[in-house]
Amino acid sequence: MDGDFSHGADADRRRAEKATALARFAWDRAIGGAELLALPDDRLRKLARAAGVNPPSTRETWNLAAELLDRKSEWAGRHPDDPRSVPAHADEKIMWVKRPPPAWT
Rank of each mutant, 00 (worst) to 15 (best):
D2S: 15
G3K: 05
F5A: 13
A9F: 11
D12L: 03
D12Q: 12
R13E: 11
R15P: 00
R15I: 00
E17C: 01
K18E: 12
K18G: 00
A19L: 05
A19D: 03
T20G: 07
A21S: 14
A23L: 07
A23Q: 09
A23G: 14
F25W: 14
F25G: 05
A26V: 02
W27D: 11
W27P: 03
D28Q: 15
A30N: 14
I31F: 08
G32W: 03
G32K: 06
G32C: 09
A34T: 11
E35D: 14
L36V: 10
L37A: 02
L39K: 04
P40R: 12
P40V: 07
P40H: 06
D41A: 15
D42K: 08
R43E: 12
L44I: 02
L44S: 00
L44T: 00
R45T: 12
A48N: 01
A48E: 00
R49P: 00
R49H: 06
A51S: 14
G52D: 05
G52T: 06
V53R: 00
V53Q: 03
V53A: 04
N54H: 04
S57G: 13
T58I: 01
T58M: 07
E60A: 15
E60Q: 12
N63A: 11
L64A: 13
A65R: 04
L68V: 01
L68M: 12
D70Y: 03
R71K: 14
E74Q: 14
A76H: 09
G77L: 09
G77T: 05
R78T: 13
R78D: 14
H79C: 09
D82N: 15
S85H: 05
S85F: 10
S85Q: 08
A88V: 10
A88E: 13
A90L: 03
D91G: 04
D91C: 01
K93R: 15
I94Q: 06
M95W: 06
V97D: 01
K98C: 05
P100V: 08
P100N: 05
P100W: 03
P101F: 08
P102V: 10
P102N: 04
P102M: 08
A103S: 10
A103I: 07
